[in-house]
Each structure stands twice: as C-alpha cells, then as structure tokens.
Computed example of a mutant assay.
Amino acid sequence: MAEKETYEALPAGRSLEELIEAERANLMQVQGMARVLYDVLLYSDDDDGTMHADVAHVIARLIAETVDALEKIVRRFKAGEFGPPPNEPADDADSGRST
C-alpha cells in the first residue's frame, strides 16, 4: 500500500479546496464500507464476527486519519498558509462595495 502523504509536507500548489476534496474522498470510502458492514450484519446468520470486527476496525482507522488530517488542515489555515481563492482578490478593498 502506498504511503499516505502528510499535510505538513504537501507541495505548495495544493489548495485548501484540493485538501478538503481528498478528505471528502476518504469519507466516501468510509461510507461505502459502513453500508457493506450494515448489510452483512443485517443479513448474517453465521459466525463471521472476526471479519465484521476487521471491517469495523478499518472504518475506525479511516475516520481517525480523516479527523487528524482535517485538524492539521485547520491548523495550517489558521496559521495563514492558505491564500485567498484563485478567483478572489487578496484585498477586499476593491470588492466593488459602494459607501
């Protein structure tokens, strides 16, 4: 399995939107696994407890990684590492508001 990139060492070209989208993809994977686990548990009448526990463990790990990654993104944002969105001016003095 490929090593997961860390958010402290991301290339400068990655935007906040790209980082959030990557975490959204992780959450979608978790959702898919949770749905499968639900179906298996709902209709299971055999002794597959170990497999169910393994799936639950993977879900918990992915959620923990996603929460950790989002916390790091928030810290970087608060530290001012992200500029304004590409389509917005850095200074809202020229935003066109009338006085």
Rank of each mutant, 00 (worst) to 15 (best):
M1N: 13
A2G: 13
A2V: 11
E3N: 13
K4R: 14
K4M: 14
E5V: 15
A9H: 09
A9N: 01
P11A: 02
P11K: 05
A12E: 14
A12G: 06
R14N: 07
S15D: 09
S15H: 01
L16G: 03
L16Q: 08
E18F: 04
A22L: 01
A22G: 00
E23G: 00
A25G: 07
L27I: 00
M28D: 12
Q29F: 00
Q29H: 14
V30M: 02
Q31S: 03
Q31V: 09
G32N: 05
M33K: 05
L37Q: 08
Y38E: 05
D39W: 05
D39G: 07
D39E: 10
V40T: 05
L42V: 06
L42C: 11
L42A: 10
Y43I: 03
S44A: 10
S44Y: 07
S44W: 05
D45V: 06
D45C: 01
D45P: 06
D45A: 01
D46M: 01
D47E: 06
D48G: 01
H52E: 07
A53T: 06
D54F: 03
V55S: 04
V58M: 09
R61K: 15
L62A: 01
L62G: 04
I63V: 14
A64F: 09
A64P: 00
A64R: 12
A64L: 12
A64W: 09
E65K: 02
E65A: 06
T66M: 09
V67W: 09
V67N: 13
D68I: 01
D68M: 04
D68V: 04
L70C: 10
E71D: 15
E71Y: 10
E71I: 15
K72R: 12
K72T: 15
V74S: 13
R75I: 11
F77W: 15
K78W: 04
A79H: 14
G80D: 03
E81H: 12
F82I: 10
G83L: 14
G83F: 10
P84D: 10
P85E: 13
A90P: 02
D91L: 10
D92I: 15
D94E: 11
D94Y: 07
D94V: 08
S95C: 06
S95V: 06
R97V: 07
